[in-house]
């Protein structure tokens, strides 16, 4: 079973790379969907660079979400920051209640068109999974382990870096993974405010009623999300092994 899944994954990856590198060779496949002599493959920009741009935006937003969410998670689980726990929980929850499109739209007048509003929307939307998982991860470190660490003379800082964060790492990474996958799809909406990304392809398809474009943009985005999810999962398993956890 796992063998078959690996083969499937590698196949999907190969397909994605092949399509992004040489999209024109897939033209016959999409031709039936493009009516009235419309081009079957997106021709108003380079698919590869659009995909990379979208991936870049998503990763940047995820990095920012991770930094803030983990920082916040660490802060509110220290004795000095415990009083902020309920508030930050509420805020991060509200962050995910705000629809990304609405955040996007409202951010435009503040920061202008382009990547920035998308980054803001993705950042806000991605906070919750990472923050929640960081909290659970840090709070479920066994008390005995912490006691032992203190007993061996570790300072609070050493304990955090050498014991708590490594033990919470699997959960934190899972949060990052969730957040990344949600945001790969959400990022396409950014193209409505002129962010570079595969949303451009989809919107071009919507505007010209060209299903071939819509399908290309959608499938490439979906494949990227799935592969990213799987890739992160594999990475997590490696990391898990290196911290000798189960």
């Amino acid at each position: 079973m796992p063998r078959a899944a690996t083969v499937l994954r590698l196949g999907a990856l190969a397909l994605l790379i092949a399509f992004l590198a040489k999209p024109q060779s897939f033209a016959p496949l999409f031709a039936p969907l493009a009516q009235y002599g419309a081009p079957p493959i997106y021709d108003q920009g380079n698919l590869l660079s659009l995909a990379l741009a979208q991936l870049g935006t998503v990763c940047l937003a995820a990095a920012a979400s991770t930094l803030v969410a983990v920082g916040l998670g660490v802060l509110v689980t220290r004795p000095s920051g415990a009083q902020f726990l309920p508030l930050s929980r509420t805020l991060v929850n509200i962050g995910q209640t705000f629809p990304p499109v609405a955040v996007l739209a409202v951010a435009v007048p503040l920061v202008g068109f382009g990547e920035k509003p998308t980054l803001i929307a993705l950042f806000a939307y991605g906070l919750l999974p990472i923050f929640e998982n960081t909290l659970v991860g840090l709070k479920t470190v066994p008390g005995a382990v912490l006691e032992a660490a203190s007993g061996m003379g570790m300072s609070a800082r050493q304990r955090l870096l050498a014991v708590e964060l490594p033990l919470a790492m699997p959960l934190i990474l899972e949060g990052v993974r969730l957040s990344l996958v949600i945001n790969v799809g959400t990022a396409t909406i950014g193209s409505t405010v002129a962010a570079k990304g595969l949303g451009e392809v989809i919107i071009a398809g919507l505007l010209s009623s060209n299903t071939a474009f819509i399908l290309q943009g959608g499938l490439v985005t979906g494949l990227m999300a799935i592969l990213l999810y799987d890739g992160m999962a594999a990475l997590e398993r490696r990391l898990l092994r290196s911290v000798a956890l189960d």
């Binding site: 969907l33 996958v181 790969v184 799809g185 959400t186 990022a187 396409t188 909406i189 595969l198 949303g199 989809i202 919107i203 398809g205 919507l206 009623s209 299903t211 819509i214 399908l215 943009g217 959608g218 499938l219 985005t221 979906g222 999300a225 799935i226 999810y229």
Partner: peptide
Amino acid sequence: QTIPAIALFGILMA
């Protein structure tokens, strides 16, 4: 879930 919303809307139109 991994298919972006605008794409799924579009794909279903046909």
